[in-house]
Amino acid sequence: MATFLFYLLSIITVASVVAMIFSRHQAHNALLLAVAFTSLGGLFALLQAPFIATVQIIIYAGAIMVLFIFVIMMIDLRQPFPPLRKKWVFALGALLIVVIFFELIMVIKSFPTASKATNLDFGHPASLGKLLFSKYLYPFEITSILIVAAMVGSLYLARRKER
């Protein structure tokens, strides 16, 4: 059952991402990305990490993509963008693919073995909270300061000019 679900969810994720890349319709792109995020959440749940799974769905599919779709539908672009045909874009893309592929191989090689990675507390909200407030306190706080700064900046940019 778990294997079947794993293949089903993986196929849905990969297929929707590929379809998103090839589709030229903005609203469809956003929806396919939301499908990919949701099935990614399902994959996390299969890895015995229900907390990460639900948070993945709440934040990515439930909040971020809804805002994307909100903006896309508000602007309501009737005709899709024409495909880009510039040489340097292809060159940059090819370079990025090589770099990311290389990085992925390095990461996968450095993975611990399966027995080491699955301990019982993994992904439990309490253990995650303890880690965030002890070992990773500084990264956590710095990230939140960064987010607040970004929020204040966007509010400032969106403010109506009063003259």
Partner: peptide, 14 residues
Amino acid sequence: ANVTLLFVLAMLSL
């Protein structure tokens, strides 16, 4: 599961 409350919120947000 240990996150049923979040599960309900996630589904309602979808």
